[in-house]
């Protein structure tokens, strides 16, 4: 049975098993490999996407649970003003090393800053603790979030 969902503001329809995780629907059926597979158990955050405004682990989200919902992935994150500022800060500080986890990091940071544009340092570490970076770019991730937070405040002023 075909299932409809909205990905990066575009209506998409897929006809696969409803229990297929959104991660694999994005990668295999929608040709969007920016969202990454790391653990398949919701432990590393590499597969993070934004579902109706909330950061979720797409490896733990069945397609049926995403049906009819609004999904944002790394490929479309800059369409929101907050996402654009996050990506700008990430680029400016050259956050990535290998880069594999960074899509998930950017999605988590975007969801966090969308809900709370001025997080404290503790809120940042708590909000980002679900995303592993094996290269340990954590110091720059924290800096980039602080920079994006400032840029968001500047843009709103």
């Amino acid at each position: 049975m075909a299932i409809s969902l909205t990905v990066n503001r575009k209506a998409r329809t897929v006809d696969v098993e409803p229990d297929k995780p959104l991660l694999w629907v994005l990668r295999e059926d929608l040709g969007m490999p920016g969202t990454k597979f790391g653990c398949g158990a919701g432990l590393c955050g590499a597969c993070t996407v934004i579902l109706n405004g909330e950061a979720v682990r797409s490896c733990q989200t069945a397609l049926s649970d995403a049906a009819g919902k609004d999904i944002v992935t790394i490929e479309g994150v800059t369409a929101s003003p907050v996402g654009a500022k996050v990506v700008e800060a990430w680029t400016d500080l050259d956050v990535p090393q290998c880069g594999y986890c960074q899509a998930g990091q950017i999605m988590s940071a975007t969801a966090m800053l969308t809900a709370n544009s001025k997080p404290t340092a503790d809120e940042v570490t708590a909000g980002m603790a679900g995303n592993i970076c094996r290269c340990a770019t954590y110091l720059r991730i924290q800096k980039a979030i602080a920079q994006a937070s400032k840029a968001i405040a500047g843009g709103a002023a």
């Binding site: 490929e75 880069g99 899509a103």
Partner: peptide
């Protein structure tokens, strides 16, 4: 800056797992 940084933050297919 890393030459691939712009492609990484756009989620472009770069990695082995992305080969298609």
């Amino acid at each position: 800056k890393g030459v691939d940084t712009p492609a990484i933050v756009r989620g472009e297919p770069l990695f082995g797992i992305d080969a298609q």
